[in-house]
Each structure stands twice: as structure tokens, then as C-alpha cells.
């Protein structure tokens, strides 16, 4: 699932080298923390959150297909 997130996000941003996805275990669920260049944040969120919503929805489809539980969080340090 990490590969999916990285592939999609890197495909959307101007600075793919700044994209970092860190899996964190939280109560048996994998939380993927996503960090990226400040100027790319808007591109990944999208208008009215459309883009990140689509990424999360596909993540859920893949997770249930594989029988795992995970979520995606955008982290702004």
C-alpha cells in the first residue's frame, strides 16, 4: 500500500523527491504519514479535497482487497 501512495503522490507533485511516506502502527492499523514540499500540499489535497479523498478511497479498496487496515494522514511539520 505504501508503494501505491508513493506512486500516486509522486505523480501529482512538482517535487517528487520531497515526498516521504512513513508507516506508523496505531492500534493494529497502519497509518501512513505523508510529508511533502509545502508548495505541493494543495495539489495533493485538490479542490474541495477531491484528490486526497480519491486517494483515500482507493487506499480503502486496496486495503480491503488485501485484508489490511490502513489510513493516510497528511502531516505538516
Amino acid at each position: 500500500m505504501q508503494a501505491f501512495i508513493e506512486h500516486v503522490v509522486k505523480g501529482l507533485v512538482d517535487e517528487p523527491e520531497a515526498v516521504a511516506v512513513t508507516p506508523v502502527d496505531r492500534n493494529g492499523m497502519t497509518v501512513y504519514e505523508l510529508r511533502l514540499a509545502q508548495r505541493d500540499v494543495g495539489k495533493v489535497i485538490g479542490r474541495k479535497g477531491n484528490t486526497i479523498q480519491a486517494i483515500r478511497s482507493l487506499l480503502q479498496v486496496g486495503a480491503s482487497k488485501k485484508g489490511v487496515r490502513c489510513t493516510l494522514e497528511l502531516v505538516e511539520d
Partner: peptide, 23 residues
């Protein structure tokens, strides 16, 4: 994985990669 986002990408290959990642 290639992350050169400026290169035009083949739609079919991109789709197959995405779906492969999702299992």
C-alpha cells in the same frame, strides 16, 4: 520507481501499475 513527472506517461501502463499496487 521512476518519479520523473515531466515525462509523458503511457495511460495503460500507469493504470496497470496503480492497480497492481492495490492488489
Amino acid at each position: 520507481m521512476s518519479s520523473d513527472t515531466k515525462t509523458p506517461q503511457d495511460p495503460k501502463a500507469t493504470l496497470q501499475t496503480l492497480l497492481g499496487h492495490l492488489g
